[in-house]
């Protein structure tokens, strides 16, 4: 780990002012400290933001506003979130371990970096995400955990978060503040696809700080499920995950389905094609399967991850059917 200077500001203004070009904000540290140990992140200055007043969960404009420094475990266990947005609790609880969820913050979870082997270990020379222009070792390497949707020639990494998959389906809004003031970023625009600049994961600008995550009111959000498919039963990253939230009318017809996928792309993947095909339909396995197939029609698999294409379709079916069996 490179030497760094350390500050622990008490206000957001101080925190923003402390930020310089080689600085990093640290919240829970579960990802940043790990990356610093690996030598992937080498900040010269570390700004501990844990004393900032961003730790509350409050009702907000009919929905909920979650402070960026609320721990993942506190958010998952919060009665308001469990009752209104159980899919968020489920997604958070599906990730990592209780120890890590106790440390990890809501804001930090959004900024997790990929678990691609070739990114995480700087002794691999090829990684456009770590060092632009060096290539992508994963394309020709071992790519079982890699992307099948939205990848580019430059990068086939996936976003590792479970929580963000649920937030995507919930159409959350990320509130940020920075040297140039406050702004709101719709969740779907928060994370990026890799394109030619995979080194940039999100549309957060340098020096900006996440302050809150707002979740809009969704009356039917209890009719939802989070399905995580992984190599072991706990404490493992998703091969594929699905957040599904269904708005059904009294006759069982879908007014709207919200479906987001994890483990398949550089960002939480909102399955808009499938959502479009399902709108106005009665939910049954065949219909959902057709929608899932349409969503994955443009999937591009690599040598070791072609199973994800079929797995993603089956997972969508399982999750949507399961959500449909719940009460709103």
């Amino acid at each position: 780990m490179r030497q760094f200077t350390y500050t622990c500001p008490k206000t957001i203004e101080e925190a923003l002012k402390a930020h310089t070009s080689e600085a990093a904000f640290i919240g829970g540290g579960t990802n940043l400290v790990d990356l610093m140990k690996m030598g992937v992140e080498r900040p010269a200055r570390l700004i501990n933001i844990n004393r900032l007043p961003l730790t509350s969960i409050e009702e907000h404009e009919g929905g909920v506003r979650v402070g960026a420094l609320v721990s993942n475990s506190d958010a998952a266990a919060h009665a308001f979130i469990r009752e209104r947005y159980p899919v968020l609790s489920e997604a958070i609880l599906a990730g990592a371990s209780q120890q890590l969820r106790n440390m990890a913050t809501m804001g930090g979870n959004l900024l997790q970096r990929t678990r691609c082997y070739y990114f995480y270990d700087p002794s691999y020379k090829e990684c456009n995400k770590r060092t632009p222009g060096t290539g992508c070792a994963a394309k020709q390497g071992f790519n079982r955990i890699h992307a099948i949707l939205g990848a580019s020639e430059a990068c086939i990494a996936v976003h590792p978060s479970d929580m963000c998959v649920a937030l995507s389906a919930l159409d959350a809004v990320v509130q940020v503040t920075g040297p140039k003031g406050d702004r709101s970023i719709p969740f779907r625009e928060f994370h990026r696809l890799p394109g030619s600049m995979p080194q940039i994961d999100t549309n957060l600008r340098p020096g900006e700080l996440i302050t809150y995550i707002d979740i809009p009111p969704i009356t039917y959000a209890r009719r939802s499920t989070y399905l995580k498919v992984r190599d072991r039963n706990s404490y493992a990253f998703a091969l594929v995950s699905v957040a599904a939230i269904l708005d059904l009318d009294s006759g069982g017809t879908l007014r709207q389905a919200r479906i987001a996928l994890g483990g398949v792309a550089h960002k939480p993947w909102r399955a808009t094609k499938a959502e479009g095909l399902l709108a106005g339909k009665k939910v049954n396995e065949r219909i959902v399967r057709e929608a899932a197939e349409a969503e994955l029609a443009n999937a591009k698999a690599y040598r070791h991850n072609s199973f994800k294409v079929e797995l993603a379709q089956r997972s969508i079916v399982r999750a949507v059917i399961a959500a449909g069996e719940k009460n709103a």
Partner: peptide, 29 residues
């Protein structure tokens, strides 16, 4: 493991369990 992947370093901080390998000492003032 020193990377938050095994739990052997679990301690209680203000009553909550955490992985002590992924947090800096100075953050626990």
């Amino acid at each position: 493991c020193d990377h938050g992947q095994c739990g052997a370093c679990t301690v209680l901080v203000d009553g909550k369990r955490i992985n002590s390998c992924l947090t800096l000492a100075v953050m626990h003032e």
